[in-house]
Design a protein around this nucleic acid. Structure first.
Lengths: 206, 206
DNA sequence: GCTAGAACTTACTCCCAGTAAGTTACTCGG
DNA sequence: CCGAGTAACTTACTGGGAGTAAGTTCTAGC
């Protein structure tokens, strides 16, 4: 049986790592972090558990590898949309829109990303934060674009605003996946832009 | 030895439940969800593990009991501040301020609340959502107060805004606890209010 | 005192992350 | 073609923690 369906020969490390990562992404996406055992992943790939440990170190390590890759895709997608926009106002909207569209198009990816809360304890927390920091940085850049140059906000304010936007978009994404009839990405992006655009111009240095 | 330090007699159920809950709150707060074992809690209370299972059903059950209680306190505090405000603009600021102050004053409580992400998978997720829903509802109420009556936003828009604010405040809270020198609650509340106040008035029915 | 039931315990099972130590297949120099 | 070296991979385990079955002890009320 195994000989017909899976004449699994040895692969070199890079190929095997990719194979494991893909399976892990799928299974984590389906069953969540807690619901997935390393034996599950191993069985799915058709490989024994210690091999995964050799390549990824731990369950957290494997999960973080998935997380980093998915975050990377998402970040690229959003960043591209932002960079392609003609002006600051469009950039804000385009960024939101790209975010929500990506999440609609990659639902299993989002399951993994949401589960990152799983890692709020443990040594993996820093890695998770790093991966989020890239987003915060992108948002902060956009915020600086939006704030009028003649009334510069201080760093704390930039951070506060960037964190707020990051938190808002994440919660909206979670809400949309759990909602029976979520409003379309365009509507959410539009509303969010309406909510934030004015305020970005009137930030006062307290 | 046990007779001198802990002449632990039997207590009636309600008293024991309280005792367990308090210990659990403390230990979860110190070590997080993953880092806490049921044996730890049992040992701390001076009771055996099955008793805890009899009263709280499961580890998730115990954690959720802590969560619900802390959320309740927090919600009450914020709701009081909002209700005491003279007008909508003040209510927004007062609500944010109460939120961030409470979290400053109850750091171990917040550790537990943050760990709720832990429960994003499993049957506990709905309970977590319910407890969060109360907040969303409070925020939605405030949002309705803020939106001018002559240009009513639709329900989707109210939800989008409420979810955004909930997400923003949660992420800001997490950021502040992890930050070495977080800005004071007043500053965060002020900045957030500046960011959102204008937008709340210009919501358009797309 | 005696009994009914609540409060509580001992002593397990099972599952899963992680590991020690070994085995098999590919590769490259001769 | 052949042996040696190494990368790829496995079997068979440990340890720890969630959850449970089956009792045992205290106490309240008669």
């Amino acid at each position: 049986m195994t000989s017909t369906t899976t004449p699994k020969r040895r692969r070199d490390r890079a190929a095997r790592e990719r194979e494991i990562l893909e399976a892990a992404e799928r299974i984590f996406g389906e069953r969540g972090y807690q619901g997935t055992s390393m034996d599950d992943v191993a069985a799915q790939v058709g490989v024994s558990k210690p091999l995964i440990y050799q390549y990824y170190g731990s369950k957290d390590g494997l999960f973080l590898a998935c997380l980093a890759r998915l975050r990377g895709h998402l970040l690229d997608t959003v960043a591209d949309a932002v960079m392609a926009a003609a002006n600051a106002e469009d950039a804000l909207y385009a960024g939101f829109l790209a975010w929500f569209r990506f999440l609609d198009e990659h639902p299993q990816a989002w399951s993994v990303l949401v589960d990152e809360g799983m890692l709020s304890a443990g040594p993996a927390a820093e890695a998770t934060d790093e991966v989020r920091a890239a987003f915060i940085e992108l948002i902060a850049t956009m915020v600086r674009m939006n704030v009028p140059a003649d009334r510069p906000a201080d760093d704390d304010e930039i951070q506060i605003v960037a964190q707020s936007i990051s938190g808002a978009t994440e919660r909206l994404a979670i809400w949309r996946t759990r909602s029976a009839n979520p409003p379309p990405p365009e509507k959410v992006a539009r509303t969010l832009q309406d909510l934030l655009w004015q305020g970005l111009h009137t930030l006062k240095s307290s």
